[in-house]
Structure formats: structure tokens, C-alpha cells
Write a protein that binds this DNA or RNA. Structure first.
Lengths: 162, 162
DNA sequence: GTACCCCTACTCGGATAGCGAGTGTCCGAGTCGGAATGG
DNA sequence: CCATTCCGACTCGGACACTCGCTATCCGAGTAGGGGTAC
């Protein structure tokens, strides 16, 4: 029950992309460098985001990734789906139908209580993640940052976009 | 981001234990047989529940596992903790502190927004699971069961307890 | 007949292999920009 | 001087090893109960 660390990587990467001037992007190598992450592995995760339509890619020199939608329309749940897939963590295998007492007598059309409870819990989890957008996160981070940090980021971005 | 199937197995096992006459229990082999599961693997999962204090074990003939608390005081979250451990699925590795702009200037005492958002989402998930007890699940299953199924279960249990 | 002891059978508990998903990396496919060249 | 062509560098994309945790199993540790034996 551990989430892939790719979710953390790409979430931070999307927040960084949201902080860029509109219409601009960054290559995967720069996104990895910004957080000192393995470039090749970061590239792999960005591919997943591209397949999911969260970001769009541009090849060639001055290419890279940029958000395919306004940052306010991208939620953390979108990123989780892109990296991990949208399947629920709890997968009911209907073991209640097996065994000596599970036989054919019962109509099992309705999900069992355990399945229903986990589904409800995961729905609450998803709802929370859907309610948080990359835009909010970027704004909050920008508001908290010190002036020194802000200038350092602007300088680094300017160097990469040049 | 897949939950161990041991959670499903032991959750069903606990519901079965809750349906037994008070004070009685069943060995791991019977719990596995009831749902047609691998006995050795089921035994391993029951060990985890025993270590976590959800069930208590008794050795020797006529031994087995029984709930260590009233079924209404055992939640699905207790079972998840016993099997998977209580650590959050999203583990923040503080990558924001790394890289060219992450340096020492910023005070990182407060968690980053991404970490906070995932923590909040998981808290909602946990709250849902904590709100569902094994007792409720057993009662709901008993209420839905047909008479035929109820007698089959009673007969099987009687055979095992004899 | 009764009390004690031993032995067997049954159960849990931890230590031990096997396997698959996530982790990590690399090289080929595709593309844009600029330099070189000819008109 | 300008248009065209070619080349190179840069980027994404998918294919290929590797590792760790979940899966699955087995055998030893411990115990309760029953049968046997001595008194």
C-alpha cells in the first residue's frame, strides 16, 4: 500500500510548470535537475503524464513538456491516475462466493459490505484529491516563498528558457 | 498503489469470527477453508492480526483465533494497520529541498502543499475506515443472508466447533 | 478407584523460496534550428 | 543578398535489466487433552 514516488516527482514537476510564464515549458531533464532527481526515470514518468493528457510534449530543440490545461483544471487526482492508474487500491475478489458455504444459493449481485466500505473510503480520498488543483498549490507555494527564493527560481528558469 | 489481498482475507475472517458464539474461535485452517483460501498464507496473515492485538491466539487442540475485543470496537482501519502497517501511502521525501533552487535559504519546517494535500486525503480515507466496524458488517451480512445460507453457515460452524 | 505422568495430536509462530510490479537505464525515432551553399 | 538544402543537436518515446516487497510454503515451538500406569 505504498504510492509510487513518481506521483511525488510529477506533482512537484507540474507545480513548477505552473509557475512558468504561460505557454512555455521545460524538458524532462530540466524538471529532473530542479529537484535533483534521476533524469531518465523522471522522463519515464513524464511520458505517463503525456499519455494521460495532463501535459503535452514538444520534440526537438526548445522542446519539452508544458501543461495541456490551465493549472487550475489539473487536480492531484489527475496525476495519480496518470502515474498509478485509476483502479481502486482495494480489489474485491469475491471470496465470499467461494468455500463450503459460499455456494450458489445466494444472490451476490450486490457488493459485499467490506467492498462497499472500502469503496466509500476510497471515494472520500479521491474527492479530496480532486479538490486540490496544481494552480492552488503553485499559488500557495509562491505566497510562502521568501524573496530570495523567488529570485533564485526566476534566475534558474530564465537560464533554462534562454 | 494496490492494497494487499491479505486485508480482504482477514477482513472476511474477522466478520466470520464475529458471527461465532461469544468466546469461541476458529483455527486459521478453518478460516481459510471457509473461503477456499491457501491455508498457510492465511495463517501468516492471522499472525499479523495477532501481533497487532486485533485477535488473540490459543495454541494446542481446540485452539485457534478469536477476536480480542467486541466486534463493534474493531474497525476496518485496525485490520489495514495490522496487515499493511499504518504508514501513509504517500511518503514525502522532501525533494523540494534538493536541487539548485532548493538550498538552505528557505525554512522548510512546514510541510509542502503537496504533502499536506495527500495527508488530508488519506486522513479522510482513514476516517471512513475507522467508522466501519466488524460488528456492523457482520450484522449487515446476517440481515441480508437467506435462511438457506444461514443454516448452512450454522451447520458448518457447528461441525468445526464440535 | 484415583492421582499422576507421559505422549500424541493439534495449533501457532517465525524462517525460508518464488514471483511480479515498481525502479532505473539506455538507445532509437522524430523534429526544429542554424549553417552552408548555390543562385 | 536571399532562398534552399543539408546537417547536427536536442528532445521524446518505447524497449530492456534490476531490485524490493508481496506471495506462498514449510518446519519447529508450544500446549491442551487423553490414555496409561502406579499407588
Amino acid at each position: 500500500m505504498k504510492m509510487s514516488e513518481g506521483v511525488e516527482w510529477t506533482a512537484h514537476a507540474c507545480v513548477l510548470l505552473a509557475a512558468l510564464p504561460p505557454g512555455t515549458g521545460l524538458p524532462a531533464s530540466a524538471l529532473a535537475e530542479f529537484h535533483a532527481l534521476a533524469p531518465a526515470y523522471m522522463a519515464k514518468h513524464m511520458q505517463a503524464l503525456s499519455r494521460a493528457g495532463v501535459v503535452e510534449s514538444m520534440r526537438g530543440p526548445a522542446g519539452g513538456y508544458r501543461l495541456s490545461r490551465p493549472a487550475n483544471e489539473i487536480s492531484l487526482w489527475d496525476i495519480v491516475v496518470a502515474i498509478e492508474g485509476g483502479e481502486p487500491a482495494f480489489q474485491c475478489t469475491e471470496i465470499r462466493q467461494q468455500g463450503p458455504c459460499g455456494g450458489s444459493s445466494q444472490d451476490f449481485r450486490k457488493p459485499c459490505g467490506i467492498h462497499a466500505a472500502f469503496s466509500k473510503a476510497e471515494a472520500a480520498w479521491r474527492a479530496e484529491l480532486k479538490g486540490v488543483s496544481i494552480g492552488e498549490l503553485a499559488d500557495a507555494a509562491a505566497a510562502k516563498a521568501t524573496a530570495q527564493r523567488r529570485t533564485a527560481l526566476a534566475q534558474w528558469v530564465g537560464q533554462k528558457l534562454a
